[in-house]
Amino acid sequence: MNTGMDELYREVILDHHRSPRGREPLPGPADARAEGKNPSCGDELVLELACAGGAITGAHVECHGCAIATASSSILAELVAGRTPEQVRVLAEAFRTAMHSADGVLADDLDPGDLEVLTGVRKFPARVKCALLPWITLLSALDAEGEGKPAAPATTEA
């Protein structure tokens, strides 16, 4: 590949794109749910979370988006299970910061998994939104869960 394409389409990302995690429906009804949209390109995502004992036990994502959005949603599904909503918020915020920073470093104690690879997308400004879409949808689902009302659709536009 050339001109940075191998940096954007890293093998890890292509793998998540080929076999995305979190595609199986949740075993029971969702405890939190949100929809996300990127109006500038039409990408859409539905995220459902199952929670038990103060932690997220599983995520189900349906993502109609590009490889970057799909991989990001797959990594998200992999990472949120077993964390508390608070930990997940911290992780989402750290990822957002990393995507807008020069070095893109995520602290090891966040246990960021493949998210570390995804921060390479920050070098392609037009694609940052694609990587963030699942994460803003996640925040929207958590907000709604906290307030016990349906989530407002998340959008990548301010």
């Binding site: 590949m1 050339n2 001109t3 940075g4 394409m5 954007l8 389409y9 500038s40 390109c41 039409g42 990408d43 988006g65 590009c66 490889a67 970057i68 799909t70 392609f124 037009a126 694609r127 694609c130």
Partner: peptide
Amino acid sequence: HPHDMAQLLDSQGIAVRAG
């Protein structure tokens, strides 16, 4: 996906629109 298509084509100097 069209975004990926447009991005990869761009890397070859080919400008198309996706969306």
